[in-house]
Simulated assay, not measured.
Amino acid sequence: MDVCFKFVQDWKEARSKGVTKVPNKKQPMQGNSRRWQPPENGEYKVNVDAAWSQGVDFCSTGMVLRDSSGHFIEGRTMHLPQAGDVLEAEALAIREALSWVKNMEVMKVMVESDSLVAVNAINGVNNYLLEVGHIIDHCRLLLQSMPSVRVKFVRKQANEVAHGLAKMPCSSNCLVIFTSPPTHLVETCNFDMV
């Protein structure tokens, strides 16, 4: 019973203060570039984004894997159930991206999201809200099993391909895999490589 009481007290304190810094943790990673940047040689990058609308209990996510030359390797869009708000949708999207990376068994990967709150929570920079704690914990477990995979914040302008994939129509419980960019994203992918 004491554990439950402490849990509720921690929740009330977090809600009253908002998101606060955790002592002895590194500062948040800031994505300063307004353009997509390729990963270092020999690395891969997964950009991920979520699309969510108020009044619905699901979201869609888009993710794209590119190499150090900026070449589109694979993209995905999927419909995920039970997202209650934007933060939950973004956290679910990052979790799906990390699961995808783990299944690919690619060595060095940078996962980028334009959700600063979710990225900071996953990286332990800030406390996270109770509503998404289980998703954040799952992301952290996935990262612990992949020491050469990192999660980083990036500006929305540098995440346009993932955003475009997340906005694509997708029926309930679908997964669409792209081996080349969809027609409406070819120009954005080419712009990123310039």
Rank of each mutant, 00 (worst) to 15 (best):
C4Q: 09
F5P: 01
K6L: 03
F7I: 03
V8N: 04
Q9Y: 01
W11I: 05
W11D: 02
W11M: 03
K12A: 13
K17W: 04
G18H: 04
G18N: 09
K21M: 15
K21Y: 12
K21R: 15
N24L: 10
Q27E: 15
Q27L: 14
P28Q: 01
G31P: 01
G31H: 02
G31F: 02
R34Q: 14
R35E: 12
N47F: 00
A50Q: 06
A51W: 12
A51G: 05
G55K: 08
V56A: 08
F58H: 11
C59N: 10
C59M: 12
S60K: 08
S68F: 12
S69V: 01
H71G: 01
I73V: 14
G75C: 04
T77Y: 07
T77Q: 14
H79P: 04
L80P: 00
V86D: 11
L87W: 00
L87E: 14
L87T: 12
A89K: 10
A91E: 03
E96L: 00
S99G: 14
W100R: 11
E105R: 15
V106K: 12
M107P: 05
K108W: 08
M110V: 15
M110P: 01
V111I: 11
E112H: 09
D114G: 05
D114Q: 06
S115H: 06
V117Y: 01
A118V: 09
A118F: 06
V119T: 06
N120V: 03
N127C: 09
L129E: 14
L130A: 13
E131L: 10
V132R: 04
H134L: 12
H138K: 15
L143P: 00
V151M: 04
R155H: 09
Q157N: 12
Q157P: 09
A162T: 07
G164R: 06
L165M: 09
C170S: 11
C174I: 04
C174A: 08
I177R: 13
I177H: 06
T179E: 13
V186K: 12
E187H: 00
C189F: 06
M193L: 12
